[in-house]
């Protein structure tokens, strides 16, 4: 074979392999979505949303788990977002040239990828042990710690995208620094920052590991944030690993609910980011 043909062949093989890799990635995504729909849709009914988790062999739904997930995600987002936004503001607006900012940015990026189960352990040692019992508050705290790095990262990125001219114009009018940040810069970057919050919610909505030893689980409907509380991910874990067919069915139903919510959040967040004129939301 001539050198030319050999080079062409190598090229073809490598390009075919890269096409194959992409195809495989997409195929797995569709396979996962397919199994979720195939197993999950038949498992969902009105009762899923109105009845509490059943004992094996009984009729039941996921109402208490859905409530728990929503409550803990909401608390975590409400606590984590301001911390993340203020830290991101420091990095983008005040930290320029300081020695602190690069270190915070570095640590934040590590927290962003740190194993969530370790965060669960941390909250167990600092909250659950002193309180003496598992609680939904502890679960929310663990989730809030996961929200912060995501929001810090997107807030900083989005604030950096705000044109310097806007800042300078506001300062030239004599506005004090904090008014410029809150009334001008936040307003300009609002859409992007919302994207960050939505991505953070999407991240924690399916988190299981940090809840295993903070919020634990609860067989019964409970609205007491100070006690163990059922939540979708842990219920899915427990039910899927059980030998009971009806529990496994409910686990698939819950899995479909969570994945659907998260994918919708992700897609809406991306559209929002595109809409505000920038596609860089990682």
């Amino acid at each position: 074979m001539s050198r030319y043909n050999r080079r062409r062949l190598t090229n073809l093989v490598i390009l075919a392999l890269s096409l194959g890799a992409t195809g495989l990635g997409l195929l797995i995504l569709f396979l996962i979505m397919g199994s979720l729909l195939a197993h999950g849709v038949p498992a969902l009914s009105l009762g899923t949303f109105t009845q509490a988790t059943p004992a094996p062999g009984n009729q039941g739904g996921l109402a208490n788990a859905i409530y728990g997930s929503v409550a803990m995600t909401a608390v975590a987002t409400l606590v984590g977002t301001p911390i993340g936004v203020l830290t991101g503001t420091y990095l983008a607006e005040y930290g320029r040239g300081s020695a602190l900012a690069p270190v915070v940015r570095f640590v934040n990026d590590i927290l962003l990828s740190a194993p969530s189960i370790v965060i669960g352990l941390f909250v167990y040692t600092v909250l659950v042990v002193p309180m003496g019992h598992f609680s939904a508050w502890a679960g929310s705290a663990a989730l809030a710690i996961l929200v912060v790095p995501v929001v810090v990262r997107t807030t900083e990125d989005m604030l950096n995208l705000v044109p310097a001219a806007l800042r300078e114009a506001a300062f030239a009018l004599g506005a004090p620094g904090w008014t410029v940040v809150i009334k001008v810069i936040y307003r300009a970057a609002m859409q992007g920052m919302m994207t960050g919050v939505m991505l953070a919610v999407a991240r924690i909505a399916g988190e299981t590991a940090p809840l295993l030893f903070t919020a634990l689980n609860n067989q019964f409907a409970s609205t007491n944030m100070n006690g163990p509380m059922a939540n979708l991910p842990v219920v899915i874990f427990q039910f899927a690993m059980s030998p009971y067919a009806d529990w496994q069915r409910l686990a698939w139903g819950g899995a479909l609910l969570i994945t659907g919510t998260i994918l919708v959040l992700n897609i809406v967040a991306r559209l929002l980011a595109n809409w505000s004129g920038d596609g860089n939301t990682r």
Binding site: G206, P233, A255, I262
Partner: peptide, 20 residues
């Protein structure tokens, strides 16, 4: 679409891995 693979929660990979 490839990035959406990263958005799917760990537990979903678990249940899919176990049953499929």
């Amino acid at each position: 679409l490839i990035e959406l693979l990263a958005a799917i929660p760990s537990i979903i990979y678990g249940i899919w891995g176990l049953f499929v």
